[in-house]
Every structure is written in C-alpha cells, then in structure tokens.
Amino acid sequence: MVRGISLPGKRGGTLAARARYDNPGRVHRFARWPRRLGASLPGLLRPPGRADVRHRFGLERTLHDGAVADMSALALELGMISATVGDTHVEERIAAAQDRLTGILEDLRHVGTVIYPPVLATAGLGPGLLAVAEHRGLRILLDLPRTELSAEARSRTGLLVADHFHTLRPGSVVRVRVRGRRIVRVTITDREPGTRERREHRAVLRCA
C-alpha cells in the first residue's frame, strides 16, 4: 500500500491521491515504484529472546515427557488388555481406541514440533531446519557458517527460521543464509509456489 509519500505536484497532495484524482481505479505509474520497492525491500524478523527460547524448550519437554509419554504408555496398556481379553468384539473396540489415541498423539506431536522442533534440540541448526522444512513440504537451501554456533545462537536462530517456515505455503522455495558468531545475521529469501516474486527477510541477533 502506498500512503503518505509527499512530493511537490501541480495540485499538491500525495502521489497516491494524485493517481486516484487523475484516473480513479488506477494507480499512477510513479506510485507503483515505491510499491514495488516496498515489496523487494527486506522485511525485518523479530528474533526470539533468551527467555522465550528457554520457555519454549521447557514447554516442549513438558509435553514430550508428560502428556505424550503417558499416552504412549496408555497405548501399551490397551495393547496388553487386548492380548489378554480373548473377545473379538472387545479387541476391535480396543483397536479403535488405540487408533484414536494415535490420532491424538499425531496432533500433540505437531504442536510439540511447532513449539520447539525436536531435531533442533537434539541435533542442531542444520538438521533441525531440514526437519521442519520436510514437515512443511518446503524446498530449502541452507548456507550456514562452517564453524559451530554457540548453543544460544543455534537455538535462537533455529527458532527464528523455523517460525518463518511455518508461515510459508508447502512447495515454497527457501534459501537461508546465516553468518557471524556473536552478532548473527540471518537472511531468508523465499518464493511461494505459483509466484515469481522473491521476498527477503532479515534479522540480527546479539548472542553471548
């Protein structure tokens, strides 16, 4: 949207206003420039803070070690009951209950992955981002530093990029470039399917 760009003109006012006055329903060609410029300018992403990262890690662990673990144990218990019951009808009902349990676990698993991707927690930035991209159906190219980032930089950068992945449509093509160690610079370029427009997003993180 173009608004508030004041340039001296014959009748005064903004370019957008001028365009509407001259030709209602059509955007003036001068007004299209800033619009295009706006689309191509990098958008700034807000990185998660240290406290956010700790909180999200704790939430995922609580979900994993609590509800998910208990429900998996419940699935085993149902399996045990099914093995001892000896009644086909009851076995079928138990199997149906196990199926429902599996569906609920799938949902919880999805929630856990969004809160804090498990591979990011266990294997680091590259594998973690690949895992999220795979779940989201994205095609990605990673350009990461050759030297290992600190634990804080890995987790904050990983969550920043993973959160952005969750906003993209499946089939999008994404390039992620990460540079720096204490001051980490992140550039994400993406193109959604069916469009030719590339969008660029940037973030800078100050890490300990």
Partner: peptide, 16 residues
Amino acid sequence: DGALFREGLALLLQAA
C-alpha cells in the same frame, strides 16, 4: 527413561 512406558513394554514383551 520413562518408567511407565518401560514397565508397559516389559509386560507386553512377556505377553508376546
């Protein structure tokens, strides 16, 4: 490491 799942799995293995 989950005690509940570990015990359940042991019981299921024995049942199998």
